[in-house]
């Protein structure tokens, strides 16, 4: 059972990574708009022009 002393810290590290990733995503504004993307996905049949690159989350 002493394996728990190794497994538990690993589990917490993994959980912490997930939480940090979530916090990062939220701060990037990934969850700011929850309505439009669901509409966008059904209509995104064509390639959007690649020029310019990053437009989201400029702030």
């Amino acid at each position: 059972m002493s394996v728990i002393y190794i497994v538990m810290p690993i589990a917490f590290v993994l959980a912490a990574i997930a939480v940090i990733a979530f916090v990062w995503a939220a701060k990037q504004g990934q969850f700011d708009d929850l309505d439009t993307p669901s509409l966008r996905v059904v209509t995104d049949e064509d390639q959007r022009p690649a020029a310019g690159g990053k437009g989201i989350g400029v702030d």
Partner: peptide, 17 residues
């Protein structure tokens, strides 16, 4: 370059040259 519309707030973010 890009137009992103946020439907809920009717706000469009435009990026142009």
């Amino acid at each position: 370059i890009e137009a992103r519309l946020e439907l809920r707030r009717a706000m469009v973010r435009l990026t142009w040259d």
